[in-house]
Design a protein around this nucleic acid. Structure first.
Lengths: 124, 124
DNA sequence: CCGTATCCTTAGAGATACTG
DNA sequence: CAGTATCTCTAAGGATACGG
């Protein structure tokens, strides 16, 4: 049994799954792997997310020690988000997921002209 | 843009996430990586899942071409589930998630005596 | 043994408006 | 710019009972 972030898990894979088991967190991590970002930059890049949801997800990721939140005392406000070491260590997982997804699409999907990888779940 | 299983995705990572983005599917895949299993065996090994939910999740995975369902015409019924090639290719992803989880727990969690890896999300 | 059929409860997330 | 505060909707999943 593992105890992390006030939850209990019986497997370390569950621990990992818990980090991004929703519609948005993996996308946020992906965009921060690229470079540190301000709130607004993230909101622009993940443009389907609402401001409220982005705020909630950033807080969750901060609480889980995946991202850092740095506030600059200035007007207008500036807040920069970056990955922690633990967050950056997620890259291999993302890479594998990317690779698997490519193979899966080749086998079962159709590809239409793309713009950019944005990582979110498909609309249900 | 990708079109798979009647959904649209703008990134192949999203495609992968969609496969196991709930509380149970990853656990089912994990148990089938070990060996093919009957319905009852899965239900015993993932003992917190309800029969109904297991049924639903198995159907979803079958529809997504991750598992095969083989029915033996006998009484009492026998149904065996196994991974497809695509399902088996998920192993590296699982392995990386396992590795990451171990590191994360070392850094932020507590470990208490364990029984066996069961993969499910922690109770919310 | 391997499921279906209902009913029910919750949490995730969208829409919208407001604030230091 | 970077958030809060409400309100609402929906779908995932649990409990329970029944069926081939």
């Amino acid at each position: 049994m593992y105890q992390v972030n006030d939850k209990e898990f019986n497997c370390s894979i569950s621990v990992t799954l818990d980090i991004f088991n929703d519609r948005w967190k993996l996308s946020i991590i992906w965009h921060l792997l690229d470079s540190d970002k301000r709130f607004k930059e993230l909101h622009n890049e993940i443009d389907e997310i609402t401001q409220k949801t982005l705020t909630v997800k950033l807080k969750e990721l901060e609480k889980k020690n995946i991202i850092n939140r740095e506030v600059f005392a200035q007007v207008p406000p500036k807040v920069v988000y970056s990955l922690t070491d633990a967050g950056r260590r997620l890259k291999p997982v993302l890479d594998d997921m990317f690779t698997w997804g490519v193979g899966y699409v080749e086998e079962f999907g159709k590809i239409t002209p793309n713009v950019q990888c944005k990582i979110k779940e498909g609309k249900k």
